[in-house]
Design a protein around this nucleic acid. Structure first.
Length: 177
DNA sequence: GCCAACGTTGGC
DNA sequence: GCCAACGTTGGC
């Protein structure tokens, strides 16, 4: 059993959303990973390409600047929560829907009345070790977490404050060598 | 590769 | 509006 200590440069107790909102954002790491975000200019990116109405409603209506979100690598081996980001800009039209060259083009979305929205996210931290779904199932208090429900597909999900706290605490532990 | 759990499409 | 067929997501 390896000893664990807290990472020196991150205090998970400081990771509290001023807005009280917490989310989880899924991304396939082959498409866009947390390392891509770390390398992005100013470590900010627009969260484009969401084409699901339930997720769109969250992006457009609920996310606020300052909200914190877990960054989840979906379709990965293994799928895992890998870090934390902060909402840097609230919902605005997803312009990739207007671009016929874009993979996420949607001919039915128009600039005057956009169908799809996105937010900007800023990198906050990368966990010392990815927390796989198997890892998460071992943690206390996550039985009802949306990500862990069977068949849960929503790519933008609400996360309860207690769930966020448990996951960030676990993610900020690093192993002694 | 399988399949659960949706979401979308389109005939009626 | 109903619903069967099909498509997608994403864990397993």
């Amino acid at each position: 059993m390896p000893k664990l200590k807290k990472s020196s440069n991150v205090d998970p107790k400081q990771l509290v959303s001023s807005t009280g909102n917490y989310w989880l954002l899924k991304s396939e790491p082959m498409v866009f990973s947390i390392d891509d975000l770390i390398k992005a200019p100013r470590q900010v990116t627009c969260w484009d390409g969401v084409r699901n109405y339930q997720a769109r409603n969250i992006l457009r209506d609920q996310m606020q600047v300052g909200d914190l979100a877990l960054f989840h690598h979906s379709n990965a081996k293994p799928p895992a929560v890998v870090g934390v980001v902060q909402i840097a800009r609230a919902g605005y039209p997803d312009h990739t829907a207007f671009d016929p060259e874009n993979d996420h083009y949607d001919a039915k979305s128009h600039r005057a009345e956009p169908t799809w929205y996105m937010v900007d996210v800023k990198f906050v931290l990368k966990f010392a070790v990815p927390l796989s779904i198997q890892d998460l199932k071992q943690l206390p208090g996550l039985k009802k977490m949306m990500l862990l429900q069977r068949g849960s597909r929503l790519s933008v999900q609400p996360v309860r404050p207690a769930e966020f706290a448990v996951i960030v605490q676990a993610g900020c532990l690093v192993q002694h060598s």
